[in-house]
């Protein structure tokens, strides 16, 4: 299990992305890529919008089914990203808004994704299951 606390800055985000890349060494490449994408969306939300003083990333291996679970904790403003409305993915390029896709990608690629406000903190978990070839 990996766990580390970061500052809510772009430097903190860079450090977390590098650490996560290492912590996911046991995950097959294709699953690792989508986990990195999903994590980037959550990192960006925390750093840009939460006004947290610090945030923590935990990574743990799960079994039956085999997978990886990430937990993000921050002491910022209460925010449940799962309540965000899904973007309309059927619109044409001209009609598409720039943004709003991050959480949607998380919801579509990770299962389950959970949120709770616990002891003044936002706690988000997301799990990616995978099969080894």
């Amino acid at each position: 299990m990996f766990e580390k606390t970061y500052r809510p800055t772009m430097d903190g985000l860079a450090e977390a992305a590098a650490d996560l890349d290492g912590a996911l060494a046991f995950v097959p490449d294709s699953a690792k890529a989508v986990v990195m994408v999903a994590a980037d969306e959550i990192f960006a939300n925390i750093v840009r919008h939460s006004r947290a003083s610090a945030w923590t990333l935990s990574v743990e291996e799960t079994h039956d089914p085999e997978g990886v679970r990430l937990t993000f904790e921050d002491d910022g403003l209460a925010f449940d990203p799962l309540l965000a409305r899904d973007p309309d993915t059927s619109l044409s390029a001209e009609e598409r808004a720039v943004g709003g896709l991050g959480i949607f990608i998380v919801k579509k690629t990770m299962s389950p994704v959970t949120y709770e406000r616990r002891n003044g903190k936002n706690v988000l978990t997301m799990t990616k299951s995978f099969e080894r070839k």
């Binding site: 990195m36 994408v37 960006a44 001209e94 598409r96 720039v98 943004g99 896709l101 990608i105």
Partner: peptide
């Protein structure tokens, strides 16, 4: 490119709109 998050999609959409 091993992976692209929504931040990258934003770049692609802006370029697509500019080219159209």
């Amino acid at each position: 490119v091993p992976y692209m998050s929504s931040a990258g999609l934003r770049c692609l959409l802006m370029s697509q709109k500019a080219m159209m």
